[in-house]
Write a protein that binds this DNA or RNA. Structure first.
Length: 544
DNA sequence: GGTCCCTGTCATGCC
DNA sequence: TAGGCATGACAGGGA
């Protein structure tokens, strides 16, 4: 590190890692804030560690079991089992308990328990996947067991500080942080809502201020969702509007809130009633029906039952594709993949205008399935590779994968431990990207060559026309010259006289000039025989 | 439904 | 030898 170049490389690596986080949608200030907050919570957690150690050990035994052969943390049987449980059962078994803070929180309850028909299917499926994560299972367990007797800060702290180190230190903590903050924000919203007056407009404004406070850098449920989307996906935020009679509210609130669901604030304070009534009057945050029911790409489809129901074969293929990727990932990467998928589920629905055929996504049959389309489809292709990169948690953006120099690229991928699938994918993306650019330049050269050949053909045609015109002009000039010569010949012959003053007969004599300009009068018979003037025959009659 | 055009991808050879 | 480039061929999708 004393070497300046080494320090520079170290900083470069840090920047590369930052760019990776930015690619995953995590802003630097948020990340720094998370780190600071985690450090503070770590300090506080150590103070309480002895107090809670016994209870947490019990929870940890429920959650994780260390595989002594591989060194990996494996989900507990209960967690594994819960992954296969349907959404309703999973919710009831993990969250939906009488004293659960989730059910005691009307807004969170509405988010998690609204009816299928009133919630975007992809959203529900995404929550199903999210809730089935071991990390979240653990969190919900903690909530279930402790939240009723502990303040919110302690709940968050427990979830952050008492997870196993590999999970906490891994990239999984980004997801855990999201989930924790999501639930924490829901508590805060619930606390806010519990104290609001009966005026529905004030209720709505309170919600808006809670969720859209620009000065609040703490990730909220919605802004955490959008923060992990790409910048271009964040551009869709303004499209989300409030389903309210007051359309002006949509100008400053990016979240979709059905104001009718807030028409009776007392419902928010009575959990049993609130749950059922929120099922009828759904509260939706960050989702737009029109977008949600629109077409979806692969990851979107993975969490959209209506899409999956199109055909069992499609569903099976999607599941197999998903397992192809995620099954090969470590737990943390799986969590990130699901996180990225969840974000894309939410954001990409607005980006897609067509229901992309999912078989294209298969990598098992690249020749048949990796083909893409023209025009906007080219953009979709890049977008699909971006999806792949995000789904596989690749450390580089597609642009960097394709355009980085070989040394930088190799250094980047070697600095990050990639599994075989990730390595193959990143190589494929780079190869395809390079070849795509090569094909584009090749076709451009070919087109340029054709254009050059066409221009050359036109030039040759023009040159041919010019030569043809010149030839015709020369022929005309030659003819005119011959006419003039004939006239001159006749004129000269007419003026010639012999020694007796008689004119020469043109049938017996003719004029012939030599190269030196001398003109000879020759008898036709002699001139025809010799074709050359001689000293005897010629009669010099005229000098030019 | 056939055809043309565009584009991505693969295979192959060359550097 | 690996990687990139160039290019023909093929296939899919849109017009």
């Amino acid at each position: 590190m004393d070497d300046p170049s080494a320090q520079f490389q170290h900083e470069d690596l840090i920047d590369i890692l930052w760019r990776q986080d930015v690619d995953l949608g995590v802003e630097r200030d948020i990340f720094d804030g998370c780190l600071r907050q985690r450090e503070e919570e770590t300090t506080r957690a150590r103070e309480r560690e002895l107090k809670r150690k016994r209870e947490l050990e019990r929870i940890m035994q429920r959650l994780q079991k260390l595989d002594k052969e591989t060194g990996e943390f494996l989900p507990s049987p209960s967690s594994v089992t819960s992954q296969a449980v349907p959404l309703s059962e999973a919710l009831h078994s993990t969250v939906f308990t009488p004293r659960s803070p989730v059910t005691q929180n009307p807004l969170l309850s509405a988010l998690l328990f609204s009816q299928k028909s009133q919630k975007p299917p992809s959203q529900e499926q995404a929550f199903s996947e999210l809730l089935s994560l071991p990390d979240l299972q653990y969190y919900l367990d903690v909530l279930d067991s402790e939240a009723s007797s502990l303040p919110l800060e302690d709940i968050t702290e427990i979830c952050h500080q008492n997870l196993p180190e590999p999970l906490r230190e891994n990239s999984t903590d980004a997801l855990l942080w999201d989930v924790t903050q999501t639930l924490s924000d829901s508590f805060e919203v619930a606390q806010t809502l519990s104290s609001i007056p009966s005026d529905p407009v004030e209720i709505l404004e309170t919600c808006i201020q809670t969720f859209s406070d620009p000065g609040n850098h703490t990730p909220s449920p919605s802004n955490m969702i959008y923060s992990c989307s790409t910048p271009e996906n964040q551009a869709i935020l303004p499209k989300c509007q409030i389903n309210s009679s007051d359309s002006t509210l949509s100008e400053f609130c990016p979240y979709t809130i059905n104001i009718s669901s807030l028409s009776k604030p007392e419902q928010l304070n009575s959990a049993p009633q609130t749950l059922s009534q929120f099922e009828e009057r759904h509260v939706r945050l960050g989702f737009d029906d029109s977008a949600s029911v629109g077409s979806m790409d692969l990851e979107t489809s993975l969490y959209a039952p209506d899409t999956l129901n199109k055909g069992q074969s499609d569903k099976d293929e999607l599941e197999s594709i998903q397992s192809d990727y995620t099954d090969l990932l470590p737990l943390s990467l799986q969590s990130e993949a699901v996180e990225a998928t969840l974000c894309e589920t939410i954001t990409y629905t607005q980006h897609q205008t067509q229901n992309e055929s999912t078989p294209e996504y298969s990598q098992r049959e690249p020749q048949a399935n990796l083909s893409t389309t023209s025009g906007a489809a080219g953009v979709r292709h890049v977008y699909r590779d971006e999806q792949r990169a995000q789904a596989m948690s690749l450390p580089l953006s597609v642009h960097d994968i394709i355009n980085l120099p070989v040394e930088a690229f190799n250094e980047a991928i070697s600095s990050c431990k990639l599994n075989h699938t990730q390595h193959s994918l990143i190589r494929d993306i780079r190869r395809r990207g390079k070849n795509k650019m090569a094909a584009q330049s090749c076709r451009k050269r070919k087109m340029d060559g054709l254009i050059d050949l066409e221009e050359e053909i036109e030039d040759l045609k023009r040159e041919k026309e010019e030569i043809k015109e010149e030839n015709e002009r020369n022929i005309r000039e030659l003819h005119e010259t011959k006419v003039k010569l004939r006239k001159l010949y006749n004129e000269v012959f007419r003026q010639l006289r012999d020694e007796h003053g008689n004119s020469y007969n043109p049938r017996e004599y003719k004029l012939q000039h030599s190269t030196d300009g001398t003109v000879y009068l020759l008898p036709r018979s002699t001139a025809d025989k010799t074709n050359m003037p001689t000293e005897d025959l010629p009669i010099a009659v005229y000098h030019t």
